[in-house]
Amino acid sequence: MHRLLHATSAPATGAFFQARTMVNGIAGICDPLGGLFLPDTRTLVVSDLHLEKGSAFARRGMMLPPYDTLATLRILEAIILRHDPATVISLGDNFHDRRGSAAMPDSFRQMIAAMARGRDWIWINGNHDPDGTSGLPGASMDELRHAGLVFRHEPSMVDGLGEIAGHLHPSATVKRRERFIRRACFATDGSRLLMPAFGVTTGGLDLRHRAMGGLFERERLVAHMLGRDRIYSVRFANLLG
């Protein structure tokens, strides 16, 4: 709810708190709307938009609300307006399934085109949408090396240095006075960074899950958790567990 409400009401500038981070020596800013901004190259990274998830389910008989694409794109508009990036990188699982990008209604296509105007736009392919996008501005690719960083959808088990990846939808839980609070998060140990899922109907996977095992040096791992209008940074050791 936080991002949904905030994105539609937040001004481009103003009272919101971001967290600064460093990945392989490159400075980044974690935005509470769920994107990573790299100021040196004016690059905005978002991941796991899962556009057209509702219609993908409808096709299989589950009539989820057809509003998820619009809601996600509105937040994307807000974050682009806030940072005015020269380059936008969408880190894969841009669509919930292979048919999503072709089946997307034109009005959404136009929204994306307007956002992409005057910017470079990179669609990294994900496991949900390995065939790239159709009828959208920008380039599709499996991986991008750019400004000292590697951008790919699934984190690599062999080469994680300087990697910005998505796929796992990291979330973290803190326990305060017997209460459990779980939020989507950026996760980084300074050598690689895992992006939170940006799509409004995408769930999260806890940082302690075994799928996250071996990706980070846990002593240096920090979860930048998405709050209402700020990022809450908590070290892994202080997360629930």
Partner: peptide, 13 residues
Amino acid sequence: INEAMGIGHGAGE
């Protein structure tokens, strides 16, 4: 409060 962090990050900007 607890301790200085080993890596460069802080809350707020």
